[in-house]
């Protein structure tokens, strides 16, 4: 059987086309390489600006107390590494206690946040019910009130419940979708998924819960990853809630403990405070690195049409 491949004219054409394509590819690649190089140059320069505070913090964490404010140099005259060991045990409780407390509060809160906020977001974004717009507007309003004026009524409320000096005021609201930021964030992502998905599933007899669990959540991994990262960071770093609700130093979280180092009008231990600040960044960075994979993995799963 005669095939095109044996036709010399066609072969020539094919070769020419291939050659042109190759040249073009080479050009494109060269261009892309140049672009990448430029990008990297820009990003590395920008990284230096972004990393400066970290270097500053690292340097301050090993400086002697009387040098932090008197010398602008990033290089300490003496490296005082015992800021770390001393700082860890400088307070009435060792920092291990504060870390465990923070892990409990943050861990439970993040789970609560992701579950309850995605529930509410699913309702607002994909289900129809009477009063949806009304409740959405109400929810957005709660985001707008300055926190400091609800602080006291809220404190009185939790006091009546007998929750003050426990972790409940910090954790329970997270299971009740109190962080409207995340509800709204998830709504925006959920609404971007094609409607045919639920319709098809509904025809197949899927319950709303099944649609939420099997279709919406898996397709929203970038959004969930983002939400996980933010909740972790914000709750880990939250200071005002623990300040108001925790009295006993045994129950303090890391950010609250960090504030015990500094007395703006008296004796402070800045070096140790900075050293402990550095350690408190470690869990956050680890969590960030782990969960940002979810954001990337998004491509593979949402690449469908």
């Amino acid at each position: 059987m005669k095939t095109n491949a044996t036709d010399p004219a066609f072969d020539r054409q094919l070769a020419e086309a291939a050659a042109i394509a190759a040249v073009m590819r080479q050009r494109r690649e060269a261009q892309a390489r140049r672009g990448r190089l430029l990008k990297h140059a820009f990003l590395i320069a920008a990284s230096c600006v972004m990393l400066y505070p970290l270097f500053w913090l690292l340097s301050a964490s090993v400086k002697p107390e009387n040098e932090i404010f008197t010398s602008l140099s990033l290089w300490p005259t003496v490296f005082q590494f015992d800021n770390y060991t001393k700082g860890w045990n400088a307070l009435p409780m060792s920092f291990s206690v504060f870390y465990i407390n923070s892990a409990i509060v943050t861990g439970l809160s993040v789970i609560g946040n992701l579950l309850s906020c995605s529930f509410a977001a699913y309702a607002f974004a994909r289900l129809r019910f009477n009063g949806r717009n009304f409740f959405f507007a109400l929810m957005m309003l709660t985001l707008m009130i300055p926190y400091h004026v609800v602080l006291i009524p809220q404190y009185v409320e939790f006091l009546k419940l007998g929750w003050v000096n426990t972790y409940l005021p910090l954790i329970v609201p997270k299971f009740l979708a109190s962080d409207v930021f995340f509800v709204f964030l998830m709504i925006q992502f959920f609404r971007q998924l094609p409607r045919e998905l639920d319709e098809a599933a509904e025809i197949d007899g899927c319950s709303p819960f099944k649609i939420y669990w099997r279709i919406i959540l898996p397709l929203s991994l970038p959004a969930m990853g983002t939400a996980a990262i933010f909740s972790f960071i914000w709750i880990w770093e939250d200071f005002l809630g623990p300040l108001i609700y925790l009295n006993d130093i045994k129950t303090f979280t890391v950010p609250l403990a960090l504030r015990l180092f500094v007395d703006s009008q008296g004796e402070s231990a800045f070096g140790q405070m900075f050293a402990m600040s550095v350690t408190s960044l470690v869990p956050v960075i680890i969590f960030f690195v782990l969960f940002q994979k979810l954001i990337i993995r998004g491509i593979a799963t949402t690449g469908m049409k």
Partner: peptide, 10 residues
């Protein structure tokens, strides 16, 4: 369904 999912927030 809507109110069930909204329940925690409510």
């Amino acid at each position: 369904p809507g109110y069930t999912f909204l329940l925690p927030w409510l």
